[in-house]
Simulated scan of single mutants.
Amino acid sequence: MDLELQDKVALVFGAGGGLGSAIADVLATEGAKIGLADINKEALDAATERVGPQTDTAAVQWDLSDLDSIPDNIAAVEDKLGPIDIVVNMTGGPPPTPISGQSRSAWSEHFEAMVLSVIGIVDAVVPGMRERGWGRIITSTSSGVVAPIPNLGLSNALRSTLVGWNKTLAREVGPYGITSNIIIPGRIATARITQLDRAKATREGRSVEDVAAESVASIPVGRYGRPSEYADLVAFLASQRASYITGSMIRVDGGLIASV
Rank of each mutant, 00 (worst) to 15 (best):
G31A: 11
P175W: 06
L116K: 06
A28V: 04
D66H: 09
S21P: 01
L152C: 07
A32R: 01
R104S: 12
P220T: 11
N166Y: 03
L196R: 02
V126M: 10
S180P: 09
V145K: 05
F236C: 07
L81T: 03
T29C: 06
V51I: 15
A43E: 04
I250K: 06
G247I: 04
G153W: 05
W134I: 04
E42W: 02
D63E: 14
I250S: 09
A242E: 07
S218A: 15
A32C: 13
R187G: 01
R206V: 11
A157W: 00
Q240L: 13
G18A: 12
G177P: 08
E112Y: 00
Y176V: 00
I39P: 03
L154F: 00
A201D: 04
I149K: 00
P220I: 11
G222R: 13
L116S: 10
R226W: 13
M114G: 03
R192H: 00
I34N: 00
V126K: 03
S228T: 14
G144C: 10
S100G: 12
V173H: 07
D210L: 08
A235W: 04
G153E: 00
G120L: 11
I182L: 15
H110V: 08
P227Q: 14
T29K: 13
L11G: 02
P94Y: 08
E131G: 04
M90T: 06
W62D: 00
S218V: 06
V88N: 08
I219F: 15
G17F: 06
G20M: 07
L162H: 05
L237C: 08
S21E: 01
F13I: 00
F236G: 03
A58M: 07
E4I: 01
A75G: 10
G153R: 04
V26E: 09
T179W: 07
V88Q: 07
D38I: 05
V221I: 15
P98L: 09
G92S: 15
P127S: 12
R187K: 01
E214M: 09
G52V: 09
G135Q: 04
S239G: 13
S117H: 05
P83T: 11
G164K: 06
I70W: 05
T202W: 02
Q195E: 15
L11T: 00
A124R: 13
L44K: 05
E30A: 14
V221F: 15
N40H: 14
S140A: 12
S259H: 11
S105G: 02
P53A: 05
S228L: 13
R223Q: 13
V221K: 12
I149G: 03
Q102V: 10
T179S: 15
I188Y: 03
D66M: 02
P175H: 07
I23G: 00
A201H: 04
N73Q: 15
